Computed example of a mutant assay.
Amino acid sequence: MAKLLYAFSCSVDGFLAGPGGDMSWLTPYLGPDPAVDALIPRIGALLVGRTTFDGDDPHRGSPGEGKAFGGGWEGPQFVLTHRPPAPVPGVTFVGDLASAVSAAREAAGQKYVNVLGADVARQCLEAGLLDEILALPVPVLLGDGVRMFDRPGGGTIGLERLHPNWYRVIHQCRKSAAAMQ
């Protein structure tokens, strides 16, 4: 069965996007990356949050604009949303997390389902569905924006290191003592 992988680029201070979802900060850092190049053929499907699907594209103005990994990957995409837009070729809009994960896993086969979007990744963690995390830090400090994992009042989530910046989720969302009060 396919594993769910939250793979993302982030600033060293833990932001995926700048204020308002701005992804232009990432554009100067795009280019060949051995970790990304090795990951792409291992992805069988994408599970995408609606905000990410509608969001800013760091590949704006390039031939890969509007495509996954700047055009480096093609395949089935499942967007978690309660407000589906008009149909988009190759994209399935799904209204609940369990159905979206199930459909994405089935489509991915033995490959990864790559989770895109901080909120959908948080939902997968809280539901005990996320298997692995790959963090690709970029040498910049943004100071503000969309955090890679934001769960105020949340508890510790244990990770086991598999490779540099690649982790297996071993403890799902244990609540902190303060969150349980």
Rank of each mutant, 00 (worst) to 15 (best):
G49T: 03
V138N: 06
P137S: 04
K67W: 03
D54M: 08
E65M: 13
R105W: 10
D144E: 14
V48Y: 06
P137A: 04
L116N: 08
T52L: 10
F69H: 11
D57E: 02
P139R: 03
M23Q: 15
G75S: 07
R50Q: 11
Q123K: 13
G64N: 10
F149S: 08
D54T: 06
R151F: 13
N114V: 04
G143L: 05
S9N: 12
G95T: 10
P137E: 02
S62M: 14
L30N: 05
K67E: 11
L159E: 00
S176D: 13
L141F: 09
A179N: 03
P41H: 06
Y29C: 03
S99W: 07
A118W: 08
L46Q: 02
F78S: 00
E74F: 12
C124V: 02
L125Q: 13
W166L: 15
S99T: 14
M180Q: 14
D57Y: 04
R42F: 04
T27F: 05
L97K: 13
L16K: 03
T92L: 07
V138K: 05
E160Y: 10
D22S: 13
G21Q: 00
F15C: 00
L16I: 01
R147K: 15
D119G: 11
Y167A: 03
G20H: 06
Q181E: 12
A45N: 08
P152Y: 00
A68G: 07
G90L: 03
G64V: 03
H59K: 09
P164C: 11
I43Y: 10
L141C: 05
R83L: 09
R147L: 14
P84Y: 04
T156S: 14
C124E: 05
D37T: 10
R147F: 09
A98P: 00
L30M: 03
G70C: 07
G61C: 11
L142V: 00
F53M: 04
R168C: 04
L46N: 06
A178L: 14
F149A: 01
A104N: 10
G31I: 02
M23A: 07
L141H: 03
G158E: 09
M180R: 15
R147G: 11
S176A: 15
Q110L: 12
P87L: 11
E132T: 04
A179S: 14
F8W: 08
N165Q: 14
A127Q: 00
S24A: 12
C124N: 09
R174I: 13
Y29N: 01
G61I: 06
C173P: 11
S9F: 14
K67R: 15
R168S: 12
G158K: 03
E106G: 14
L136Y: 02
A68Q: 07
D13A: 07
D150A: 15
D119C: 04
L97S: 13
L80M: 05
A108S: 08
L97R: 06
G158C: 02
S62C: 05
G61H: 12
L4H: 10
S99N: 10
T156P: 05
A178I: 07
L97M: 09
I40M: 08
W25I: 01
P41E: 01
P41T: 01
M148W: 15
R105Q: 13
